[in-house]
């Protein structure tokens, strides 16, 4: 008694046809993404769900390495706030990163990503927190004065009404003037996921 409780909880794959109909992905793409999802979701616990630890592990190859940005992205993927990402969450969130996703959708996601306190504004202290996280991650030291100079300059450009916080409208204008900021919001891989995960054909429900 007691030693054999490791039975895997099988969670059925959400209907690939439905997911394809509401995203830029084809049914085959969704099936290929399921192969990727399975790989990530079984890396720590084989429960058909991605935990924050597994997400972190997939990005950094190191589950102990806490990262503010990975944590934020995970929280945005976890739309139902269950503390885990299911396959539907995964596909819908990756859809934002699809090269064909509208720029507006990417702008909205990036705004939420950087609005750490979810107040509807990107505030100075949040920008400072993110710069410090980046510097810590990259093991770079900058003086407090340099950091303040960078933030001042950024708010001069991104916060035209100078109220000390960037609202959605200001963010949108700022991103239109600096489109390179959206580069992290596009994953070219997603245009061709079936090539990256060809094993999906063994489980495909799509007929030739």
């Amino acid at each position: 008694m007691g030693c054999f409780h490791s039975k895997v909880r099988e969670i059925p794959m959400e209907d690939p046809f439905a997911l394809a109909s509401e995203t830029a992905f084809s049914v085959s793409d969704v099936e290929a993404l399921y192969e990727l999802f399975k790989n990530i979701s079984r890396s720590v616990t084989d429960d058909g769900l991605i935990s924050k630890e597994e997400f972190q592990l997939a990005i950094f190859n190191n589950k102990k390495k806490e990262n503010l940005f990975t944590s934020r992205i995970f929280d945005l993927f976890d739309v139902k706030k269950k503390g885990v990402i299911d396959f539907g969450d995964f596909v819908r969130a990756l859809n934002v990163f699809h090269p064909s996703a509208p720029m507006e959708v990417k702008i909205e996601f990036s705004f939420k990503l950087y609005d750490l306190d979810n107040t509807g504004f990107i505030e100075r202290h949040e920008v400072k927190q993110m710069i410090n996280a980046l510097l810590c991650e990259a093991e770079i030291k900058l003086s407090e004065e340099t950091i303040e100079t960078i933030i001042n300059k950024t708010f001069m450009d991104a916060d035209p009404n100078q109220d000390g916080k960037i609202d959605k409208y200001e963010w949108k204008n700022f991103v239109y003037e600096n489109p390179s900021l959206l580069k992290v919001m596009t994953l070219p891989y997603l245009r061709d996921v079936t090539t990256a995960f060809p094993s999906f054909v063994f489980h495909s429900k799509v007929e030739d």
């Binding site: 990727l36 790989n39 990530i40 890396s43 997939a58 990005i59 950094f60 190859n61 990262n67 503010l68 940005f69 990975t70 944590s71 992205i73 990756l94 990163f97 990503l113 950087y114 920008v127 993110m130 710069i131 996280a133 980046l134 991650e137 990259a138 770079i140 900058l142 340099t146 100079t149 960078i150 933030i151 300059k153 950024t154 450009d157 991104a158 700022f174 600096n178 390179s180 900021l181 580069k183 992290v184 994953l187 891989y189 990256a196």
Partner: peptide, 25 residues
């Protein structure tokens, strides 16, 4: 030069924002 970049250009250099690594699993 970090001072010539805006804060978000710096932030977007984080590896934690680079989801390409998901595809290496």
């Amino acid at each position: 030069q970090p001072t010539s970049m805006n804060a978000f250009e710096l932030i977007s250099m984080s590896k934690g924002l680079n989801l390409e690594n998901l595809f290496d699993t």
